[in-house]
Each structure stands twice: as structure tokens, then as C-alpha cells.
Design a binder for these strands. Sequence first.
DNA 1: GCCTGTTCTGACAACGTTGTCCATCTCCGG
DNA 2: CCGGAGATGGACAACGTTGTCAGAACAGGC
Lengths: 329, 329
Amino acid sequence: MKDVAARAGVGLKTVSRVVNEEPGVTPDTAARVQAAIDALGFRRNDSARLLRTRRTASVGLVLEDVADPFYAGLSRAVEDVARSHGALLFTGSSAEDPRREQELVLAFCARRVDGLVVVPAGDDHRYLTPEIDAGVATVFVDRPAGRLNADVVLTDNAGGVREGVAHLIAHGHRRIGFIGDLPVIHTAAERLRGYREAMAAAGLQVAPEWYTMGPTTPDRVRAALASMLSGPEPVTALFAGNNRVTVTAVRVLSGQPRPIALVGFDDFELADLLDPAVTVVAQDAPGMGRSAAQLLFRRLDGLAPPEPARVVLPVRLITRGSGELPPAP
Amino acid sequence: MKDVAARAGVGLKTVSRVVNEEPGVTPDTAARVQAAIDALGFRRNDSARLLRTRRTASVGLVLEDVADPFYAGLSRAVEDVARSHGALLFTGSSAEDPRREQELVLAFCARRVDGLVVVPAGDDHRYLTPEIDAGVATVFVDRPAGRLNADVVLTDNAGGVREGVAHLIAHGHRRIGFIGDLPVIHTAAERLRGYREAMAAAGLQVAPEWYTMGPTTPDRVRAALASMLSGPEPVTALFAGNNRVTVTAVRVLSGQPRPIALVGFDDFELADLLDPAVTVVAQDAPGMGRSAAQLLFRRLDGLAPPEPARVVLPVRLITRGSGELPPAP
DNA sequence: GCCTGTTCTGACAACGTTGTCCATCTCCGG
DNA sequence: CCGGAGATGGACAACGTTGTCAGAACAGGC
């Protein structure tokens, strides 16, 4: 910038004014400065600029795994909102590891991001208190923060499962299985709650071998399903607690002699092309990302009330066939 | 930092030394400084640090759409490599719009990222020359840069299609259709070339109505397919030029009286569960991301030879059934 | 006691911008 | 011709770090 000023024969500040299109520069000198800029190939250093202005125009996004289609959609929505506010996006995957999440979050804070959108892993986010007090706007998505009262955008997990399970009950099922993710994951616990509530609301007892919570690896899901389908009181229908469970369940059930009804949480591509097509409780990933990001920027612009907001997005039951199979005799 | 120094009764530089774990500080003073840091909740400002050291420890990733599963996998791989080198990742989606790509790239450069991984949109990337000359390491992925000789990591698109089409020919097909993306997209053009070469190699003529290039919206794919399947010489097999085409083709073909053989470029989840299961030419998205990022960091560490590298990753034909259907009589 | 070398420590000037404030210049009305 | 307003331009000090260098403190050898 100094070089540009020298070449154009003006002061440093004048160059700054031209670069920022501030008023108070005659067209004549502006042109001279512009020529010098072009000649020297000058590019403003935004790092320095942002150091001075104390706004970095960037936000950090921490989620479980960018490669997961659900988070990929969420991520894109956050990006779009950020762009519309002129901000750039730092992204990082926590892989469901609280330490890695903390590392990422603190790295973002050290870079002085204006705000943070976080899909929290782990159950204790008090480490964020000093950062939030220091002014980093923070919005949690998909799950609430642990031991911290902060903005959060959620899906109606329990309600969605209730609806899905009620759907199975309405089609005559009484013995319904549930396979969920690790119980420490908030969404997984909520979904289990929805399952229990729906069964209770219909006056149905839940046998302990009908539900199981744990890692959603294909092997474990396969084993869990096998044990639900054998025994004296085999289930006639299954509610799959997430995407990965649903896919594995479809694989296992397609090799099953009796048809087993299935409803899955979270929609996925091609669900309608399978045989039978898979009924799902669909959540709106881009919608969650959008809400979270919008809330974040409202905070940054000082347009949100001081107390933490809690947004719960509705889900939608998409009936496609697999949930409408009658119970095998 | 000044406050910390004052509170600990030491000089500014000593605090800096403690924070950076530089040698030459007595344990005694180090402890005093640390206490002051904790008391004041001090966090080093990395923006300022990086302004001074002239290394931002961050790289920019520009791709078409983070929400696309292919790029999501690529993105995650880049992130992992970046993390292992202690760098943070800026992400942005170009939506296949050259102007938006340029905006993103220049914004990243203005932030002085150390390097750039770009899935190029458009056909002219000369705007990057000054940035590259200024020292921003740049690696292109999936497609080469337009009018610019730079590092690039590609998939063997033409070879993959040749293999897929040869597979169809081996199963007795002679009239094979091809539906590809916009011809300005390098990968689309390469795949068309592969199709032509495979047909020519087998001594087969290609009727003009057997192939078509354009936007891969469901409507257009549907229309293209309809016209290939009608007429005096209907195709008996189809090669789908990408993911989205394959999915639409599966939808259309499932409603078709005669079975039509199908091979798609790029694998997708559940391809094995469809009926018939879909044969694909699989490319390795994480592998591409990894290669590109590794190449980038080798450049940054000065370990790569000066001339631009060109890496071509192999593809893999995964036979599942849809490509083995015999031609309808 | 003095010199030498070895630790430590801190002042100071960068890094590349922008905000503040003052100096100049031009133009107009009185 | 003068005073003042309004435009234009530039000097300087931040922003929060780190690299350089020189000084202070301390020990050891003669």
C-alpha cells in the first residue's frame, strides 16, 4: 500500500480511501491511485484490515462430519446465509469427539471469528463461557449445548418419532422395535423418548429386548435386528433411529422371509426407489442450517433479544410403503 | 497481552515467549506469567500473530457444492490433511458459476490463505496468475484449470467410460446411449470422448440421437432418455454420465416394459439395493481430496519440483447387475 | 577483582491496514 | 478582499502480535 501511495504520489490514507470507496477523493486522484494499484498488482490484505477494524467477517462451523449428507446440507445452508452477510466460512469436523470439537472451536476463536455455529459433541460446553463473554456469538444446532444456556436450533425429535411409531401402530403393529444411536447423543435420547411415549400413549408395553441404543455400525445394527426378530415375541415393525440404521435395516430386511414394516428417522436419496419404498420422518437439514445462521447474524447485528433463543423445527412424515406393511400373522 | 505482562510484572516479549513455549524463560517467571494469563482469561489473537509471521496456517477450498456427496467426501479428505498440517480450512461453494468462484478465490487470497484447492468452474483461470506469482500455492481438483498451467488432480474419466461402455458391449449391446453434463465441463467432455472411443474401438457407429450433453436436470434427462428409447433404432443400454443422471435414469427405467442395461459414472449409496443393482464406474472422491491436499502441502513445504504436477487417479468398474442385462430382442 | 561467556529479559520496530485529526486548497457570499 | 464552509489530502497512532538486538544478571576461570 505504501508502494502504491508512493507511485501515485499520494498519502497512505488516500489509497485506503480509494480501495474502500470512501468519499472525498477527486476522480482525478482516484484514477491515478487505481492505475498504481493495477500496475503493482496490489491486493488489500484483509487480515490486517480485520485486525484493525476488529471484525473478521468470518464464522466458524463445527459439525460431526461434512461428508454426512445431513450435515452437508446443513453446511451449505450456513454457507449461503454467511455469504449473504459478506462473511466467509471456516469449517471443521469433530468426528463426534469432544476434544477435537474443543480444539476446533478454540482455534476458530483464536482467529477471532465473529460467530460460531456448532453441532455439539460431548456433554459439557462450559469451556465456551469465556469466549461467549468475550463476544463470540454462538449458536448450537441439532443438539443443545451441555451445561450452558445458549442459542440452539433443534428438530422435534421426540415428536417425529411419536408420529412415526403411531403410524406403525395405526397399521396394526403392536410389537415395534427401536434401534437408536449412543444414548449420550441428545437426539438419540430424544428419539428413544418419543418411541416410549408413543407406545405408552397406545397403551402398549415395551419389552426390553425391543429397543437398543449404541453405535450405529452395520454389524451392531445387524445383530440387534437379528435378536429382535427371533425369540418368543418377535417384532413385526422397526423404527430406525437414524439414517445409517435405516440403510442397514433395509439391507437386512430385504433378505427376510416375512415382510417387516419400517419407518426411519431422516430422509435419504432413493428411499422412494427401494422395494418397498421407505417411509421416513424427514427433518429439514438446510432449514436448520439456515435458521441457525440467521439467528447468528441477528445476534451479530444486535437485533436479537438478550436471552438465549430456542428454535424447534417441525418434521414431516413421508409415507412411502414400508411403514404401511401389515404385521405378519 | 500488555495487560498480562503488566500483571505478571514482566515485559511483553516474555509473555510471548511463554505463550509460544519458546525456550529461555525460568520456570519461576513462566509460572507467574501463566497465572496472569489464567486470571485474565487471555487468548492469543492468531490474526495478529499471523499478520506478523506472514503465514496464516489456513487453506481455502472452493468446490461446486458442499452438499453434493461427491464433493462432501472430497472436502472431508482435504480437511483431514489440512488438520494434520495444523491448518484451518475456509470452504466455499461456487455453484458452477465462474464469477462466484472468482469472488471466493479472491476473498480467500485477500485473507492471505497459504494455499488453495479449487474445483474450477468456467474455462479461464488466468485471473489467478498474479495470486500464484504472489506465492499462493494452488492445486486444482477434478478438472484442470482453464488457460493456466498449474497443479491438478484428475480422475481417469475417459478411461472409466471406455471400460464401462466396453462392459456393455461385452454383454451384447450394440446400440448404447450416453447422457452427459454440459460440454463446457471438462469431466463431461472427457467422458463423452471415452464413450466415442469405446464405440469406435468396437467398430460401432454412433447415431447422433444416441448421445446428448446438457444440464442434468431430471426433466432434461427424462426427455433425452425417452427419445433414445423410441424411434427406429432404440438403444438397448445407457451409460449415465454422472450421478444425477444415473438416479433419474433408474427412476425412468424402472417404469419401462423392456429391461434396459445401465452403467453410471460415480458410485452412490444404495446402488446395490436397487433392483436391478446398479453397475457403476466408481471414482475415489476422498482419494482425490487427499492427493490434492497432500500435493498442496508438499508445495508449501517446498518439497515439490517446480513444474506443475498432473496426477490422474484410476477408477474402478463395480459390476452389480444393471450392466449385465442382455439386450432386449 | 576482572574478564568472559551464558542465560534471561525487555525495548523497539515491524507486519498492513484504518480512524482521528489537522492542514491545506478552493470556492463562494458579503 | 476577507471569512468561512466544504472539500480534499496526509501524518500519526493505533490494532496484537513476533523478530531483532542489546542490556542485565549471574556464574566461572584467571
